[in-house]
Design a protein around this nucleic acid. Sequence first.
DNA 1: CTGTTAGCGCGTTCAA
DNA 2: TTGAACGCGCTAACAG
Lengths: 362, 362
Amino acid sequence: MTTARESSTGRRTDQDGPTVVRRSGPVLLSEVAAHAGVSLATASRVLSGSRSVGEPHRGRVLAAAQELRYTPNAQAQAVARGASNVVGLIIHDVLDPYFSSIAGGVMREVEERELVVFLASTHSDVDRELEFVQTMRSHRVRALIICGSRTTDRAHNERLVHELEGYAAAGGQAAVISQDRLGTHAVVPQNRAGARELGRELVRLGHRRFAVLAGPRGLLASRDRLTGFREGLAAEGVDTADLQVLHGDFTREGGERLAAQLVAEGSTATCVFAVNDVMALGALAAFRAAGVRVPEDVSLAGFDDIAPLRDVVPSLTSVRLPLAEMGARAAQLALDTEPQTTSQTVRVDAEVVLRDSTRRLA
Amino acid sequence: MTTARESSTGRRTDQDGPTVVRRSGPVLLSEVAAHAGVSLATASRVLSGSRSVGEPHRGRVLAAAQELRYTPNAQAQAVARGASNVVGLIIHDVLDPYFSSIAGGVMREVEERELVVFLASTHSDVDRELEFVQTMRSHRVRALIICGSRTTDRAHNERLVHELEGYAAAGGQAAVISQDRLGTHAVVPQNRAGARELGRELVRLGHRRFAVLAGPRGLLASRDRLTGFREGLAAEGVDTADLQVLHGDFTREGGERLAAQLVAEGSTATCVFAVNDVMALGALAAFRAAGVRVPEDVSLAGFDDIAPLRDVVPSLTSVRLPLAEMGARAAQLALDTEPQTTSQTVRVDAEVVLRDSTRRLA
DNA sequence: CTGTTAGCGCGTTCAA
DNA sequence: TTGAACGCGCTAACAG
């Protein structure tokens, strides 16, 4: 066996052996063409499946490609073709079932079209969100999907809109899953209406004194759900002036902390509404730890109806959102809409699902 | 406002207004250069942060880039530079907490290096796994991470190895999280040892009659855990000849179905080992539905110690795997190893965590 | 139907 | 330090 070093150009070493092909770096189309004895153009045509290929040649190119283990350079293809086949997806956290369910829906739709997805998680950091949008722009993603509640942070919103305008101007399609505030396509869960209906149902169960475990004040999803919940209570004749509202993180830990606080304060609420399910799960754990029984001592309701809810006892009352479908819908909006079209908004209904965690009061 | 149509080339329309720039498609580096009155090369230098830049120029380029909202074309950069900044990640399912935890770890490591991740989910379909490896190769990912148990499917393994050899030959780095069978770097959870220790602990709790809810027969993770479990029982003097083993899907539904079957058959086992936590969760639901109490009527243990376990009652005995760290470690192996180096294997210990779902027998 | 040629957007060498 | 020119791997006009 020869120990001949390869030429510094990193190209193939010419040897007299049969087909001993040592090389560094991927196989090139030009090599396939040469190996098949045709021009680069014809090789490109048969492998790109474009059109018109002579049968003596066609087969030889295919054979050469297979033998050489040729894999086209998607990046170069995208540059030459002027359009990439990747979709960007920005979420807060893969570990959060809310986001992973949506991601699942997006990916199903994306993979169906033989595209690839860039996934980035902001961990609720607005600066990272902005960075990722830039990164996605840079990679010329043909569609960009941003999910996660918008906030009242005007400065951030403006920068984001600015960035998205640049993206759109360059021919990119974007869709958000949350509130319709960015001038892009939008899949908008009916947070307010859903929470309103939940409020009404809970009052109908006989509850009058409520506490709400809310997210950060600037988070629109939390805000909308709180507003809707208030409306629901009011619609059923409950005075919401003294509604107890605690603000914390939009996470399991947030819910845990707030519920503990509720217990410590000796809240007299008979029913607690956590504005999302992960917070509700945290609250459930805190109540359990404090010896407060759900629903005997206090009723508990969440929002989103995430998958892990299936495995908790008592089963948790929630407001169902078709998460996977929302993701899929957003992907459709971004992928199947003609550029230069006015952006569309898809409203998604939320449905109250009463379960064991909310009891009927005597 | 003029309604002048853009030229068919889609380039900028020359107008006399101040800086009215209508164009289609992204802003180009050449435009930034022109706008700054410098050559393309200098513009490239300052924006790529390479070196030596005159201060009259440097500033003007930066200003022009900002004004024009220039975003470099990462694809073209990758082609010109000969190296991309994307990492490929192949998992089975984003919705499965096992995989999303690992994905979280991978992404943390990847984002720390200012890289991007391509995420693909196979839904346990080996053909899709192979397709995705090709796709990732095609996109010239600088690192590829494949997670999910290997199988005994020789044909598939060979094709996969073949594909990965091509990837490696082209200079790519790959790491698997599962078994070390692909000739790549590997992060290998000690499934067998973990299950063995679990078996011993359960016997020490007084159990003698066990049932195992296993995954598909060809799945190595399931097989290793079953083997280890057997060894653990045997080590404590339990005869495993008549160990009851049921095979099903490696999913929550699989666990649910098998547990229901166990109940229907009137199993006399006092302790059930589900080879992974999602199966255990499904089993728990099935037992609950059948009126079989855990752990009073039967003890139950799982494997992986996934996050959602926190919220189930009774708390589930499991074998802890540091999922996020495993993902991070795999990313490190693939990203921080010099190409042409022999592939490394990192063994990851699994730790038994006894909780309420497994009771001590009288 | 095929090969030649000119791009795609950018990095980088080479002189100047 | 700067700019002209070439190269990256591939697609798509254009002729033949």
